[in-house]
């Protein structure tokens, strides 16, 4: 290899670039919620099957992330937060990202079907389609409600986990879906309030850009209030119990108070203290979801000792 040919390959991808293509941070949330969905389900699953199912759900989610990076390379190149992603950085070619996304999607769905059942596999296939086609190709560049409807893609994993264990869809799995679905908009809008992303330059109609920050603040409060009955309702189902309900009550009170803090202030006040309330709300939103699902796990653990539950 000559020096000249080495320079041609200077931007060649390392293994880490291919891992980055699968959005590992999103995958970690998918793994956690899918695992909770699987573990709290009334039907017992062999640990090996459960582990494999979670792995294939994670690979499916990663594959949809690769397809998203393939399609959104033009947008990603324009924004500070995303311009170092493997495709816009020139490490992985768009064709390669597309091939990896499609291959891993097909593999993950088939393997989940073989490992568990068709219901779980169909839900995973729909999730990948929803994220890659409905959200990435259609909603994201078209409507400021992109986050609201697109959030469904991130909400499916616990439902897939539940289906992997039971082969079915039930009120419990629908409410776990609803919890993440309604949680997603305020979580991302809080981020959009304090992140100085150039969404307008990239042609992404974020609510903060199309309708302004005051409307976004109202929307954050509205969705936070909508979240309360879903969160508490889940506690009254077969997978809830006193521990979950106590955790949910405290978290919802805190979350609504934090959303009210955001709603009551204007841009001048936010700018003056460096978006403290918005950042606090965003941080709290992460704990909110994590602790809800952890409380469901605790209830499941207690039930196995004939404690917990209703």
């Amino acid at each position: 290899m000559t020096d000249a040919s080495v320079m041609e390959h200077e931007d060649e991808a390392g293994f880490g670039d291919y891992v980055a293509l699968l959005k590992p941070r999103v995958m970690s949330l998918v793994v956690f919620t899918a695992l909770v969905g699987l573990l709290v389900a009334p039907a017992g699953v062999h640990p090996v099957i459960g582990l494999a199912a979670t792995l294939f759900i994670a690979v499916g989610a990663g594959a949809s992330g690769a397809l998203n990076m393939w399609y959104d390379a033009d947008i990603d190149a324009m924004m500070r937060r995303t311009r170092n992603r493997p495709v816009p950085a020139g490490k992985v070619s768009p064709k390669e990202a597309f091939a990896i996304g499609i291959t891993l999607s097909v593999m993950a769905v088939i393997m989940l079907a073989l490992t568990t059942n068709m219901v779980a596999a169909a839900l995973l296939a729909f999730t990948i389609f929803f994220y890659a086609v409905i959200y990435t190709m259609w909603l994201k560049r078209w409507t400021p409600q992109n986050i609201v409807i697109g959030g469904a893609a991130g909400a499916f994993p616990p439902m897939i986990g539940w289906a992997a264990a039971t082969g079915d869809i039930s009120i419990e799995s629908i409410l776990m879906f609803a919890l993440i679905f309604i949680w997603t908009p305020p979580h991302f809008w809080a981020l959009a309030l304090f992140m100085k992303e150039d969404y307008s330059k990239a042609g992404v109609p974020m609510l903060t850009v199309t309708h302004g920050h005051a409307t976004t603040r109202r929307h954050v409060l509205a969705y936070t209030l909508l979240l309360v009955p879903v969160s508490l309702g889940l506690g009254l189902t077969g997978i809830g119990g006193p521990v979950y309900l106590a955790v949910a009550a405290v978290l919802n009170l805190w979350f609504v108070k934090s959303a009210l803090d955001i709603f009551r202030r204007d841009e001048a006040a936010a700018e003056a203290d460096g978006w403290r309330a918005e950042k606090a709300f965003f941080r709290l939103s992460l704990y909110y979801l994590f602790l809800h699902f952890s409380a469901l796990l605790v209830e499941a653990a207690l039930r196995s000792f004939d404690m917990g539950g209703w």
């Binding site: 290899m1 080495v6 390959h9 200077e10 060649e12 991808a13 390392g14 293994f15 880490g16 291919y18 891992v19």
Partner: peptide, 13 residues
């Protein structure tokens, strides 16, 4: 070259 290490890492991965 550093490129060879990167390729090795990719292949091992």
């Amino acid at each position: 070259h550093e490129l060879h290490h990167r390729r090795l890492g990719r292949n091992v991965g």
